[in-house]
Design a protein around this nucleic acid. Structure first.
Length: 680
DNA sequence: AACCCATCTGCG
DNA sequence: GCAGATGGGTTC
């Protein structure tokens, strides 16, 4: 592979074999350190050679953090390797500082970072920054003093044979466990039945540990981390488990990281950043609820954790388990490629384990009485009333707050703040409308379109819903759970009759399961124009419905509010697999990821244009745009797509083009996102 | 951000 | 003919 740009003279120079020379170490063995310098410039994302001075010979080991003088500045860097030769013609600058010998960037993680950088058209340093937490010196001191080296995995007795109960209901489940226990590396997409997923994950962890290998579990939220950790502690009481969550603060985060690095914990459970944890001899990687957008890393190069773990499974020959009540299109693709196998229950078992789901049509509702268009129509009230005789009832509401969106009562134009044009909302009954962006109160609302002075609701939030339900069932306690609720997210409720109003993802777990769930405002999600809207809606509904009792125990789910028919039918039939297959076929039809490889380039128009120019020609590449982005100031966005088969060429070309732009100091930054979930 | 080096410029 | 300015490219 040769670069075909540049003059022949340059080509001739570049084709010369790099002239290598041995460096005099003045007593230091392997005095040359190849390091990656922490710089934001893409064209400098490659190793540089430095001299190891005697005083740093013991600390500047491969994988260690050091500080070097680079382009006139002192920058942090990672040692990749030590050697005796360099091909740099000039003199080597000595490493300035090497304050710790801990090899925080292991060869295995480095290889993973390289693969992720390549897949997402990012720089290696950007990925390494995601993978290695910042050092915390005092924590490191205390952990290293406590560790004589023998306190780790060796002391932990290997668990007995796997207990198969949690997997018995799934076709391929017991076999999956068996393969893990014998040291093999199966790859599975698991369609979980209602109920907690923790016990099954714990059983898989136990089987993997029985083979002597390590386990890594990544989930969207801290709450789910704690659920899985609790389940693993129950299944494996003697097993040290590392909990790796970002909101732990630097000291605890670094302590957990070091325990993993030193092999003191071979089982790791965490959020996003844990996907890069240096687990000793990884045997199984698990990701739960992989459709949750919190598994998409918000920092460049924006890798998706499902993808990172799939790459890890390949590179480290580990097993992979992608599990959830819903099935993502990306998981569906892995199945259709034959890379992973499904683990799911037979139709009859699914039917028995899931609640009865009804999605009454407008015709159905009209038959029931005049208030068919009501947000909570009469059959829903009746379902709730009957269910409350036996236990708790869940009400899923799309939005938190009271009336989170209001409009002019006369012309229906959305009500906006006079100062900043943010959307107006009501925070409680009788309060003046307030702006959702700047917080200013709109004292005298007057519609700029028609002059109307009264407001009507467009969206009803969980507080207002709770108020309505409380009036209708005065003797039943009502709890509200959600990020914006006054008591925040409620974790659990007991089995006594109670109304639980929650936003998606914030549903408390009910002891014994909810008797019924009402899923309101179905169209709020399904009517969104984004491609993922119906998949996201189904994921949210299944998440709530999975907390409801089985139909044999009277469990009922009612889907309300004009849902789109395809995801609604998938919920009624509890068929996440069929839905994912249909969804993937549609993506293929439209040439969208994951059916094709697509990169979104966002930035100022000249910058995006120039990046596109530097991109060159890639076979079958298609460019869409650039188009203006209404809500992003002057930014424009272009989409570039190729068949998946040549995706590697696309990402390599993007890296090259970004490097050229940065080397030439071209103005403006372009954000490159490969296979983004949403297009902003 | 600092450095190197090639080229330019103003004065002899 | 040459010191000092200017600018573009590199960064070990």
């Amino acid at each position: 592979m040769s670069d075909d740009d540049g003059t022949p003279e340059q080509g001739a120079l570049l084709d010369l074999p790099p002239e290598s020379r041995t460096v005099d170490g003045r007593g230091v063995t392997n005095p040359v350190a190849r390091v990656m310098v922490d710089t934001p410039l893409p064209h400098l994302d490659r190793p540089f050679d430095y001299l190891v001075p005697p005083e740093h010979a013991d600390n500047a080991v491969p994988g260690a953090r050091v500080h070097v003088r680079f382009a006139g500045q002192e920058r942090p860097a990672f040692v990749l390797e030590r050697g005796s030769e360099t091909d740099h013609p000039g003199t080597l600058t000595p490493i300035r500082r090497a304050s710790s010998p801990v090899p925080v960037l292991t060869p295995t993680v480095l290889r993973l970072c390289r693969a992720v950088a390549e897949r997402y058209a990012g720089t290696l340093m950007d990925v390494v920054r995601l993978a290695v937490p910042p050092r915390h010196a005092s924590t490191e001191k205390s952990v290293l003093e406590k560790d004589p080296g023998d306190e780790g995995a060796a002391a932990v007795p290997s668990p007995g044979p796997p207990r198969a109960d949690a997997w018995a209901r799934y076709v391929g489940g017991p076999a999956f466990l068996g393969h893990l226990a014998t040291g093999e590396s199966p790859r599975a997409v698991w369609s979980a039945l209602p109920g907690p997923m923790g016990p099954a994950v714990a059983a898989a962890a136990r089987a993997t540990r029985a083979s002597g290998r390590g386990v890594l579990v990544v989930v969207p939220t801290t709450r789910q981390v704690d659920d899985v950790v609790a389940a693993i502690r129950e299944e494996l009481p003697d097993e040290p488990v590392a909990r790796l969550v970002a909101d732990d603060g630097p000291a605890r985060r670094y302590r957990s990281f070091l325990r993993v690095l030193l092999g003191q914990a071979r089982v790791v459970v965490g959020t996003r950043a844990a996907a890069f944890a240096p687990v000793t001899e990884l045997g199984l990687a698990v990701v739960l609820d992989d459709g949750d957008d919190r598994l998409e890393e918000p920092h460049a190069p924006y890798p998706h954790i499902r993808q990172v773990l799939a790459m890890r499974a390949d590179l480290e020959r580990a097993a992979l388990l992608i599990g959830g009540y819903a099935r993502s299109v990306e998981a569906q693709l892995l199945l259709e490629q034959g890379w992973a196998r499904p683990v799911q229950a037979e139709r009859a078992v699914v039917r028995e384990a899931t609640p009865r789901v009804v999605a009454p049509s407008e015709v159905d509702l009209a038959r029931e009485g005049p208030a068919a268009a009501a947000r909570i129509p009469r059959p829903a009230w009746e379902t709730a009333r009957r269910a409350l005789e036996h236990g708790p009832v869940l009400v899923q509401v799309a939005r938190g707050g009271y009336l989170p969106a209001v409009a002019c009562a006369r012309c229906r134009e959305p009500a906006r703040c006079v100062t900043c044009h943010g959307p107006l909302r009501l925070d409680r009954q009788g309060a003046p409308p307030a702006c959702g962006w700047c917080g200013r109160h709109a004292v005298d609302f007057a519609c700029p379109e028609c002059g109307g002075i009264s407001l009507r609701w467009v969206r009803v939030g969980s507080d207002r819903t709770a108020e309505e339900l409380g009036r209708a069932f005065p003797s039943v306690p009502v709890v509200v759970s959600g990020a914006s609720a006054s008591h925040g997210v409620v974790e659990t409720v007991d089995e006594t009759p109670r109304l639980v109003v929650a936003t998606p993802g914030a549903e408390p777990v009910a002891a014994g399961g909810y008797v019924a769930a009402l899923l309101l405002d179905a169209s709020v999600t399904t009517a969104r124009p984004e491609l993922w809207a119906s998949a996201e809606a189904l994921r949210r509904w299944l998440g709530a419905a999975a907390l409801v009792r089985a139909r044999a125990e009277g469990g009922t789910v009612m889907l309300l509010g004009r849902p789109a028919p395809v995801p609604a039918q998938a919920l009624v039939r509890w068929d996440p697999a069929g839905f994912a297959a249909r969804e993937l076929a549609e993506r293929a039809e439209l040439s969208f990821p994951p059916a094709v490889r697509l990169a979104a380039l966002q930035g100022p128009r000249p910058a995006v244009r120039s990046l596109l120019r530097h991109l060159g020609q890639i076979p079958e590449m298609e460019v869409l745009g650039p188009v203006d982005l209404a809500d992003q100031g002057d930014d424009v966005r272009a989409l570039v797509r190729t068949p998946r088969r040549v995706g590697g060429e696309l990402t390599r070309a993007l890296v090259r083009a970004s490097a050229v732009r940065s080397a030439r100091k071209e103005p403006g930054t372009v954000r490159v996102r490969v296979d983004p979930n949403d297009l902003w």
